[in-house]
């Protein structure tokens, strides 16, 4: 076997593994969500014996799914905006101002990511309780999601601010631009992909976050993950859990695709001259 053939074989193997990796969980989730309650899907069958959208209808009508979706999809965009707003000044400082210890500060901003989510959640929520924020449960979750996504937001925005070219700022200034005009012509085009990436990543983080939403929210505020985890708990019904997990994952996949496109389309405009 030549080297080229080997490469090709390995590439095909990799593609097959990746496909299986994606297809099997997804396929199983879809199939399980379609199992009709009239006949259970037993282990001796390859496909469910009876398929219908009954589970989907049932979950939609008879659980707190609608409320949970409304909460999650209000919470996530607000958390994304709040996190972006909180991260931007820090990112500006880390990306554009030279000060001693800057590299260390950048590293420290990423440090919270090494702590397991649940550990952070337990102690962060106790902090919020002490601050008295828990009286407005939705607000507390919103604040917590925005703060916990800060490492990502700061990191992405720092890199974006580093991409802004000083000569563009200077050129705009030299041509008489006001601070606002300078921001629009020199900063915004370079920051735009970073802003979108931040919004999307914080959005997805918030949509998927369970621990804090559960500790702070239950029993009043239900998000999709807390609903899903309860469906995985004492009253575990696999088809219902499949419906919920699909509802949780589909918007994220769509958002990831949008993000991918945005990042691709944004790059060429950054290059100019010697770059």
């Amino acid at each position: 076997m030549t080297r080229e053939q080997l490469n090709k074989a390995l590439l095909i193997l990799l593609l097959v593994i990746c496909t299986i990796w994606l297809v099997i969980p997804f396929g199983m989730a879809i199939l399980w969500s379609l199992v009709d309650p009239s006949e259970p899907w037993t282990a001796d069958r390859l496909l469910p014996p009876a398929m219908s959208f009954w589970r989907w209808r049932d979950m939609w009508e008879n659980s707190s799914l609608q409320v949970a979706m409304a909460t999650s999809y209000t919470l996530a965009p607000l958390a994304a905006l709040l996190s972006l707003a909180l991260a931007t000044p820090t990112a500006y400082a880390l990306g554009r101002i030279a000060f001693p210890g800057r590299e260390l500060a950048k590293l420290l901003c990423l440090l919270p990511l090494v702590v397991p989510g649940f550990v952070t959640a337990i102690f962060f929520t106790s902090l919020l309780f002490q601050l008295g924020l828990h009286t407005w449960r939705f607000g507390a979750i919103l604040f917590a999601h925005a703060v916990l996504a800060l490492p990502y937001a700061i990191r992405i925005m720092t890199v974006s601010f580093e991409q802004v070219r000083q000569d563009h700022i200077d050129a705009a200034r030299d041509l008489g631009a006001t601070p606002l005009a300078r921001f629009r012509v020199a900063f915004l085009p370079a920051l735009r992909p970073g802003i979108f990436a931040t919004l999307l990543i914080v959005f997805i983080q918030s949509i998927e976050e369970f621990a804090i939403a559960f500790i702070l929210g239950s029993p009043d505020v239900v998000t999709i993950p807390t609903l899903l985890f309860s469906a995985l708990g004492q009253d575990y019904v696999r088809p219902n859990a499949a419906v919920l997990s699909l509802i949780l994952v589909v918007p994220n996949v769509i958002l990831m695709l949008i993000l991918e496109r945005l990042l691709k389309s944004a790059n060429p405009t950054l290059a100019s001259g010697k770059g």
């Binding site: 563009h168 200077d170 050129a171 030299d174 008489g176 085009p189 405009t269 100019s272 001259g273």
Partner: peptide, 21 residues
């Protein structure tokens, strides 16, 4: 007087053209 109000125009080494315009 800051550069934005000074009657000088600068040609940059890197050209500094706005890439999206």
């Amino acid at each position: 007087i800051p550069p934005e109000r000074r009657d000088t125009a600068l040609c940059f080494q890197s050209y500094a053209l706005f890439p999206h315009l």
